[in-house]
């Protein structure tokens, strides 16, 4: 019986590379391999894990990506401030993505660039380039919960999704905005998170997040994020054109608009080193 379940599990995995992720997730595998659980009923933890694993698996292999991002910061009075940046991302096999963000506006920080090597559980590596001083500064990546550019997005909301970052719990099925979805709880396992848990609505058909509720350290609902206008690229990968983050505590919100997604442009790790960071403008 054990063997069957494990072989079924492995047949779900898209590639060998992925086996590395699974091997360090003993907590999620153990419940399945114990004798008490039958093939028909799996624990909510396992079910949640499998949903997110499928989501992660379907979004693998895009290689590298360029996009322009605009942030619209809104306060309660409706005042708006716009930030624009360019984003380059390199998918890393068996590790978190590498990304380079270059700020275009506000003009006083034009040319400031942010280089980040994300990791699942170890601390991310981050460097900031300050164009006025021509200085590259290695910065602490402990700032997970702080606001990114004064927006309602925390640093941790914008880093790449890695399976190992969370423990999971499947809650229920639910229809959200007319789309049949799984509802899964995510419990951050990395240090310095500002959340006790995130609740994610995952589209059952496309396996993409539609909505996320973020619960603060006191387990009170803090923010809700919605992903809007998904488009498919390279006949596989779904990317939203728009995302909205509403803070329920302050009434402030931030809209992210992505434009001009280009995939597989031939970026290499060399495009994500300190030399490139210094050249970026």
């Amino acid at each position: 019986m054990k063997k069957i379940i494990i072989s079924v599990l492995f047949s779900l995995l898209p590639g060998l590379v992925y086996a590395e992720d699974i091997s360090v997730e003993p907590a999620s595998i153990e419940p399945v391999s114990t004798e008490q659980i039958s093939t028909t009923e799996i624990s909510a933890e396992q079910q949640g894990f499998e949903i997110m694993q499928e989501m992660d698996a379907r979004d693998m292999g895009w290689g590298d990506m360029n996009t322009d991002m605009q942030m619209i910061l809104k306060n309660k009075n409706g005042d708006e401030h716009i930030r624009s940046l360019r984003l380059k991302t390199l998918e890393m096999q068996g590790d978190g993505d590498k990304s380079l963000s270059i700020f275009d506006t506000p003009r006083d920080v034009k040319g400031t660039a942010f280089l980040s090597f994300t990791h699942a559980l170890e601390a991310d590596e981050q460097w900031l380039y300050l164009p006025a001083l021509k200085r590259v500064k290695r910065i602490s990546s402990s700032n997970k919960s702080g606001p990114f550019l004064g927006s309602q997005f925390a640093f941790e909301d914008l880093t790449s999704f890695e399976l190992k970052k969370y423990k999971y719990n499947y809650l229920r099925d639910e229809v959200v905005d007319g789309v049949d979805s799984f509802v899964v709880e995510l419990f951050p396992q990395y240090e310095h998170s500002g959340y006790t848990r995130n609740v994610v609505w995952v589209d059952k058909e496309r396996y993409i997040p539609l909505k996320v509720d973020y619960y603060d350290r006191k387990n009170a609902l803090l923010k809700t994020q919605k992903f809007i206008d998904y488009k498919q690229y390279l006949e596989q990968y779904w990317r939203a054109d728009k995302s909205e983050m509403q803070n329920h505590l302050t009434g402030k919100s931030t809209i992210l608009l992505w434009q001009g997604y280009v995939f597989r442009t031939g970026l290499t790790e060399r495009n994500f080193d300190k030399n490139t960071l210094k050249r970026s403008r």
Binding site: S140, S142, N143, S145, G146, P147, H192, G194, D216
Partner: peptide
């Protein structure tokens, strides 16, 4: 040494 996001105010 930096104290980040003190009392969830965003202040470092």
């Amino acid at each position: 040494y930096t104290f980040f996001n003190i009392a969830d105010t965003g202040l470092d």
